[in-house]
């Protein structure tokens, strides 16, 4: 996953970023904004929340670039931050939902009410709307690692090797997670269609 901006190598870009060079940061954001935003959206499925979270990812990149040791590529590192931030956001949201009653007692309903999922994925044609909405609702039920592998591979188009680097695991582990993710999705979709028939 190399940055393919003409005339600019990834090493040079990283060096410039470490000096907090404005142009380098703009180049990075321009190159990665759609990738980061798309992955955030796959997790959250809310355009406004995905944009907020994508901004947080780039703020984190800007602030922590000094800690980037270049053991992995810059893109891998940015994807890793995106995955971690998205999962963290979902955990926080679930925690807030559990405490919704307590928040409501203190008049802090906005902690939970702020988040609304879009009715429909904006990148879906109308004839596929129901299927994709159903599939994403089932993806949400997967365990975190299986969900991450599925989204990275199927939605982001990352190879198993790249997904393994992002998740700091082995390729065989990613293959196994993908196999289990598909198996679980097939199972829950079959149950759904059976219950629809009954």
């Amino acid at each position: 996953m190399q940055l393919t901006s003409p005339g600019l190598k990834e090493d040079d870009l990283v060096n410039q970023l470490k000096k907090h060079n404005e142009d380098a940061f703009k180049t990075l954001v321009t190159y990665y904004q759609n990738k980061v935003y798309n992955l955030c959206y796959s997790y959250l499925r809310s355009r406004s929340e995905a944009e907020d979270l994508a901004q947080e990812v780039f703020i984190e990149v800007y602030q922590s670039i000094g800690n980037f040791r270049e053991r992995s590529g810059l893109g891998t590192w940015i994807y890793r931050i995106t995955v971690n931030k998205s999962l963290e956001y979902i955990r926080r949201l679930n925690r807030n939902k559990r405490w919704a009653f307590v928040y409501s007692l203190f008049g802090k309903e906005e902690y939970v009410a702020r988040y609304h999922r879009d009715e429909m994925h904006p990148g879906v044609k109308l004839e596929n709307k129901e299927r994709v909405t159903l599939l994403f609702s089932k993806i949400d039920e997967l365990p975190e690692k299986q969900r991450t592998v599925f989204l990275l591979h199927k939605v982001e188009g990352q190879s198993y090797a790249e997904a393994a680097k992002i998740m700091e695991t082995t390729v065989s582990s990613v293959e196994s997670l993908m196999h289990r993710a598909k198996m679980n999705l097939r199972k829950s979709l079959r149950e759904y269609y059976k219950s629809e028939k009954d």
Binding site: E51, V155, L189
Partner: peptide, 26 residues
């Protein structure tokens, strides 16, 4: 068949783009 069609539907999802003012907002 339904399950397989639904699983395959993810391949037809278009990639999304961040808004044109993303950098300015950031």
């Amino acid at each position: 068949n339904e399950v397989e069609k639904t699983l395959a539907s993810v391949d037809q999802v278009d990639r999304l783009e961040a808004g044109s003012y993303f950098y300015s907002k950031l």
